[in-house]
Design a protein around this nucleic acid. Structure first.
Lengths: 198, 198, 198, 198
DNA sequence: CGCTAAACGAGACGGTACGTCGGGTCTTAGT
DNA sequence: ACTAAGACCCGACGTACCGTCTCGTTTAGCG
């Protein structure tokens, strides 16, 4: 009668196994990289049956994604600094981003995550909702504050504004098409603000 | 002294096999996507032994990359239109790019190529040199013309200028984080040019 | 301490797969001969993954050997005829052996088995224990009966006796160094018995 | 019109290459065993193109066979000792054979040769003609001498006589079905001679 | 002595099979 | 009922050799 898709009962799910799987995934991504990551290895490392992974995640990417999601949980109240000087505040934030991208410990997993997202629309949607969304909202909040202070045009498209600020940085990093320096971060902010001036 | 890795002799290489492999790769990427592409399938489709692929390419990504490279060979003298109106010219170009990204026939292989490049620094270097480089140079040439016409600051950083124009578009497409429309292309050009004004 | 080689659990073994593999092996040895027999073909014919073969057998030879072993299982109570006339009884048996060797349907697989055994000491040991052993014991039993009847020296070395009877036959067959006829079988029995007379 | 099978001209054959191939084959059989011997390895070791091997030999077995043949060339005038005492003479010879079989340096190649012969009727014929034949003839000559001396029945079948003497030894060695000792050699001779007595 | 045709070394080629890895499914015990 | 364990079928991996097929390069006989 009904499609009868056997769905596992989340109530009975083992939290211990879930944590072990996410932890093992994070470790393995760091150790061997995303491309060489295997479900088999995750299961072994986590001391878990493969079926337990297949039961709760629909792909390797979903596990990797969740393993990142779990990290950023609780890190929510992420308002940006607001000293009243939008240029200075944005430069501080972008410099921090540049520094993060330069750290090899962050590099590998973040790259893995981005490749995963770029290749899977469904994960991309989840990514925007769960990870990028809240962060972007915090950034836009700071930009709105700048609008109220008359530093940015009142009718500016904030989505586009974020892209002007971050997309060049993102592209350079992803394709390794140029150096990521503090000076570059500053220049980006200067140009973007000029484009957004009232 | 030298690593002494036995390298095959390019002089003896079979051009027929090379072409068949690149062609088969292009077809298969379109048909099954990059993730499900296998060397085995390429070899079979091309009517070639697997060893012939392994002899000349160091990875699946390298084959895919070359298969794209082969397409764009000869398509060199790619100067951008120059009507004297930099805004109009750039809008035309970006609208065309948007249209390309919207075409599903282009989408899949280009995405495959980008994932490949993002994950392999060596391929990325080759990509910049062989594919992106010439195209970027043509774009910069148009910007220089605009500089001479006083439409863009004479001391503008052209690399950054290109990023302001293209990176937002690229990011939206890659992460599917927003709609790609002609209006968006126009808005990008307007903002970028405002940032680059003398 | 222990080598700690991960060993599969025989309790979980699929009897259905085991039978299919042995059956496919027997068929293929008959069809293409031992030299051209491949694990790949066995797996395909048996509808089984290659790994399932590699999990339970250490070599192609071991599979072939087991496929023969499986045939002769249950064929145990193989006492030789005992009419009281040792010469007549042995002649009957050797003539039957000659006939078997002459039958091309038996020829190929038995030759394959013998080559396998000759080349692999471990298989040879198993062969003696599981296949040759019981048969030889039955033959010796008949010889003991002849000893009791005074037709053979009471202190005769029965291992050597068997070799005198069978080794010439075996050698002629294996190296194709002469014709295998009923007359030859009779002559062998006559000579061997003369050598073993009390 | 004619079959037109391109046959190489033996006159132009490179003796240097032939020797190098036979030598390399002998070495490799000793080092890696017959089963793991490859034409590719022989060619490399001999510093010879693969085609040169395929031009002059029709199979791996043929090369191996020839490499043995080359060794025994010149070792022709191989008359057996004849002290007048056939039992003593045969025991000396069989003891020597036992010793040869026990020497691991002889073991591997001789076994390789025997497997090859057992599996290829054409090689077997060549073997009998070129290698076994002359040796057997020498042995028969000694037996004829014994016949003239009245130690062996005048009408004895000498082929069968040789088999009674050697086949048990051969079988024990090939199938590793029992110990090969001097005592065993003596026992064999005693039994065989009893069977052949006038 | 110089030509020429064959044998030669080298090694790329289309293939087959190897033995291994991992994917995703299914079964068996255990908690 | 969910889990750990792991056998199963399957597809692909990257490697080793197969036997064939060019490539220049010796080399040997003959003209």
């Amino acid at each position: 009668m009904s499609p009868e898709v056997k769905t596992p009962d989340p109530a009975r799910r083992s939290e211990r196994s879930r944590q072990a799987i996410l932890r093992a995934t994070r470790e393995l991504v760091s150790e061997v990289g995303y491309a060489k990551l295997s479900i088999e290895a995750i299961a072994t490392r986590a001391g878990v049956g493969k079926q337990t992974i297949y039961r709760w995640w629909r792909s390797k990417g979903a596990v990797v994604f969740d393993s990142f999601l779990a990290l950023s949980e609780g890190a929510d109240g992420m308002a940006l600094p607001d000293t009243g000087d939008i240029a200075a505040d944005l430069k501080a934030v972008l410099r921090a981003t540049v520094a993060e991208f330069a750290d090899p410990a962050f590099e590998a997993p973040i790259r893995a995550l981005n490749l995963e997202i770029a290749g899977d629309p469904e994960l991309a949607a989840q990514y925007r909702k769960k990870l990028a969304g809240p962060v972007d909202e915090a950034k836009k909040e700071r930009l709105r504050s700048a609008q109220r202070a008359g530093q940015i045009a009142a009718d500016a498209d904030l989505d586009l504004a974020l892209e002007l600020l971050y997309a060049p940085l993102y592209q350079r990093w992803l394709l390794r098409s140029g150096p990521l320096t503090a000076a570059y971060a500053d220049a980006l902010v200067d140009h973007a603000l000029r484009a957004l001036r009232p």
